[in-house]
């Protein structure tokens, strides 16, 4: 499926098992999904249903027990610069200033002048101008996460994997960052895979919303969001889709064993 614009990301019947003590935890089971080049996919699901595990396999940080992930024709086995990742935690390098942490996302071959300009640009993008000399321990959680987002955006990957990137942000910053991510997505045509707990955010951003269920982690439903952007969170269609996704979660809750937890 190699087109001129880019490559599809094919997630092909992934299984992932972890052994915890003497038990085997089935984190993912038969997960299949195809992200078209430049598509924005949101993933929602209960805590522990394997969302991070899925992203980690796509990033090449974890190997699947069965199945594979391909970018275009090429199977993914290791990390690569064509795939960027924003981790669930900020994961900044504590000995580097904000500036150096953002620059860490740069490719090694980028000339210095261009690197400076890129860092400058991304500092502004995440609203951290004036903090370039601060160390991570001097920032709030949300500020750290913004640095981490800036770092991931630096080398403009083909596929950007975002693991709850806005979790630590306040509502206002969150909306600004959502709009920024959309803007970047629209100009760069990056394929985005965004994990979130926020159903509104999933609908606002995604072309499709993937709903996962847990134990084992599987894809329960894929809900398309055929709304033009910019989307209005209070529009009738938006609310309908939200209801549909909420219903998926509700079903879960009404199952008797869910009460037992």
């Amino acid at each position: 499926m190699q087109t001129e614009e880019g490559k599809s990301l094919v997630i092909d019947r992934l299984d992932k098992q972890f052994s915890v003590a003497s038990d085997v935890v089935q984190a993912l089971s038969e997960v299949s999904l195809v992200a078209r080049p430049g598509e924005f996919i949101s993933i929602v699901g209960a805590s522990g249903c394997g969302k991070s595990t899925l992203l980690r396999i796509v990033a090449g940080l974890e190997t699947a027990t069965a199945g594979e992930v391909r970018l275009g024709e090429r199977p993914i086995r290791n990390p690569g610069l064509e795939r960027g990742m924003v981790f669930q935690e900020a994961r900044l390098l504590p000995w580097m200033t904000v500036w150096d942490n953002i620059a860490f996302g740069c490719r090694a071959e980028t000339p210095n002048a261009e690197r400076r300009e890129l860092v400058e640009q991304h500092l502004e993008l995440v609203g951290l101008k004036g903090f370039e000399k601060a160390y991570p321990h001097q920032l709030s959680g949300g500020m750290q996460q913004r640095v981490s987002i800036a770092r991931a955006l630096m080398n403009r990957p083909e596929v950007l994997l975002l693991d709850e990137p806005f979790g630590a942000l306040d509502a206002m910053t969150r909306i600004t960052m959502q709009q920024e991510v959309l803007r970047i997505w629209e100009t760069e045509r990056t394929t985005m895979i965004l994990v979130t707990h926020d159903i509104d955010e999933a609908i606002y951003l995604g072309d499709r919303v993937v709903v996962m269920s847990s134990r084992p982690g599987t894809i329960r439903r894929v809900v398309p969001v055929p709304l033009p952007r910019p989307r209005d969170r209070s529009a009738y269609e938006f609310v309908q889709i939200r209801k549909e996704i909420y219903a998926e979660f509700f079903e879960d809750v009404q199952r008797p064993f869910a009460y037992a937890i």
């Binding site: 990033a59 940080l61 610069l81 795939r83 981790f87 935690e89 994961r91 390098l93 860490f104 996302g105």
Partner: peptide, 11 residues
Amino acid sequence: KILEVAKVFQK
């Protein structure tokens, strides 16, 4: 976790 970051960025 930080080693993983270095891996993702192919340092």
